[in-house]
Computed example of a mutant assay.
Amino acid sequence: MTANEIVGAANNKYFSDLDAESLSHSYFLAAKWHDKQAGYCDDVAKDDPRVDAAVRERAAMAAKHHRGSAAGLRLAATDLLRANRPTAAP
């Protein structure tokens, strides 16, 4: 068994023990963290006089990554909540 398989199995066990509402709340918290990181990266990306162009470019790419991660986490959280509501379609 590889390290990735061990970690994956541990994550699956952990997440299977959580109810959908707790798991979606965790996703929303992680999305909030990614939003905060994106803001920091944006600040660095716009700090023209003190930061050189290569660092600003990397910071802009990191901000894009964090915003994408936050959006994906929010989508996953929303899907979990929708799938587990009492009126969800089968």
Rank of each mutant, 00 (worst) to 15 (best):
K32A: 12
D79G: 09
A60T: 06
A60G: 10
A10V: 04
K32N: 08
K46Q: 12
T78L: 13
H66Q: 05
D48H: 12
K32V: 06
S16G: 05
D17G: 06
G8Y: 02
K46P: 04
A77V: 07
G72T: 15
L81S: 15
S69I: 10
G39A: 04
K36T: 05
D43A: 05
E5R: 12
L18W: 00
Y40V: 07
A53E: 12
R50G: 00
A83M: 07
R56K: 15
A54D: 11
A71R: 08
A70H: 05
N11P: 01
A63T: 09
E57N: 14
L23K: 04
I6S: 11
E5D: 11
P49R: 01
A62C: 03
R85D: 09
I6Y: 14
G68Y: 02
Y40N: 12
R67N: 06
Y27G: 14
S16D: 04
C41K: 01
L73C: 13
V51E: 06
D52C: 11
A77H: 09
N12A: 11
E21H: 08
H66P: 01
R67G: 02
A71P: 03
L29M: 10
D35H: 14
A60R: 15
A38Q: 10
D42I: 01
R50D: 05
A45H: 12
V51P: 03
E5F: 10
A45P: 07
V55N: 08
I6W: 13
T78Y: 12
Y27T: 08
A9I: 06
V44N: 08
E21K: 12
D19P: 00
D42V: 04
A3C: 07
L75C: 08
K64C: 02
E5Y: 10
A70E: 05
L73S: 10
A20Y: 02
A59Q: 14
A54K: 14
D42P: 00
T78Q: 15
G68D: 04
L81G: 14
A71I: 03
H65K: 14
S22M: 03
D47E: 06
L18A: 05
Y27N: 07
R85M: 11
P49S: 02
H66F: 02
